[in-house]
Amino acid sequence: MHNYIKITVLLLIIGLLVSYKSQITNQELTIQVENNQNFSRNEVVEIPYEKFSGLLKSTDQENIRVKKQGSQDYLITQWMDSDSDGVTDALLFQVEVAANSSAKYVVLVDSMNPVKETKAITFSRLVPERTDDYTWENDKVAFRTYGPEAQRRIEENKYGGTLSSGIDLWLKRVEYSIIDKWYAKNLETEGYYHIDHGEGYDPYHVGKSRGTGGLGIWENDSLYVSKNFIACRTLATGPLRTIFELDYAPWSDYNVKETKRISLDLSSNFSKFEIKLNAEKEVPNYTIGITLHDGKGEVKLNQQEGWFRHWEPINDAYVGEGIIIEPNKVQKAFEYQSKTPDQSQVLLVAKPQKVLTYYAGFAWTKSGQVTTLEDWDKLLERQVKIVGNPLKISVVE
């Protein structure tokens, strides 16, 4: 009888240990990230929400932590509801993977230890205090474009308007967010953000050009474009990715209905454009532009690989602008020279399609991200490889 009790107790202890080990296992998930390129990659990855269903049975989203295997430091994360339907779609975190290598990341539950805050974030918003710009940024770059109030002021000959669907560039050289600060300072002193106070500035002129990444239709040696956006929606803004949408009134003789979906990840020089297009009749093309400003820059059109760039002096430094698109979507690319102000541009004539996807971005030499034209070309070449060869992500069982 005594031995029977001992055996029973031992079996209970073993059962509890097995149960405890099972609970520990269920509290962790290992993600493997593979990089098949010959350069190291520092990118935001997206893990579908359903992969975390086991972990979330016993805890809330805010208690989910991610760390690189072997490290004790938790990474910045961001939960995504990318279509604003009230349902979380995915978890984002930033990975570092060496060339031709793989790395493992552990997802776990920890309600006690918070994640360290960071100044480097993505951000976007409508800015009604300066007419109605929509502006977005990350730790490397910032952009803006223009809304209906800015258009109304132009059409009614009132001060402070802008009539353009082109994409403006804000040259920044700090990792932290500058949008709110620069606009607030500009309300105090008009023209504040056109002067570099140590964080960067906006010397880039868009006017009626496409800026870097604006859209149009090329026909009969003319570029037909939309006016300002008429509505906007911020879908996500956080430490790792911002997403928003812009709607445009039907434009051109083709009555094109356009919705731009733009996203920007932390540490990327390139905004991703996914543009839904619906025309009343068949269009000949959709054309993406980069303004040539005063014509003092250098252009390279690499249609075979799908990258197109401009490198120009602006004041006492240089700015490289670029577009990346799948090569098979481009009909032709060329420099268009015009005597009309703001109409000399690099033009990428793309095949008409329901959803046009491309990347538009830039680098400023004063930011320290590039120092030479060769640096900018290498950055474009690398981005082409990044877009064409996504990191391979798998859950390790």
Rank of each mutant, 00 (worst) to 15 (best):
V9T: 11
L12R: 06
L12M: 07
G15T: 04
L16C: 14
L17T: 13
L17R: 14
S19Y: 11
S19I: 05
S40L: 00
N42S: 02
Y49I: 08
Y49C: 05
Q72P: 12
L75K: 00
W79H: 14
T88Q: 14
A90R: 00
E96D: 08
A98H: 00
V106L: 07
L108Y: 10
E117R: 10
I121V: 08
N138M: 07
A142H: 04
G147K: 03
G147F: 02
P148A: 11
P148H: 12
E155K: 09
K158L: 13
W170Q: 08
W170R: 13
L171I: 05
K172M: 13
R173N: 09
I179A: 10
I179K: 03
Y201L: 08
G207R: 01
R210T: 10
T212Y: 08
E219S: 13
S222E: 11
E245R: 08
S252Y: 07
Y254I: 03
S267V: 10
K276P: 03
E282P: 15
P284E: 06
I288C: 02
G289M: 01
K296F: 13
K300F: 08
K300L: 13
H310G: 04
V319P: 00
K329V: 11
E335W: 14
Q337Y: 15
P341E: 04
V349L: 10
V349R: 02
P352H: 05
L356K: 02
S367V: 09
D375F: 05
D377K: 12
K378R: 11
L379S: 07
K392A: 09
I393L: 13
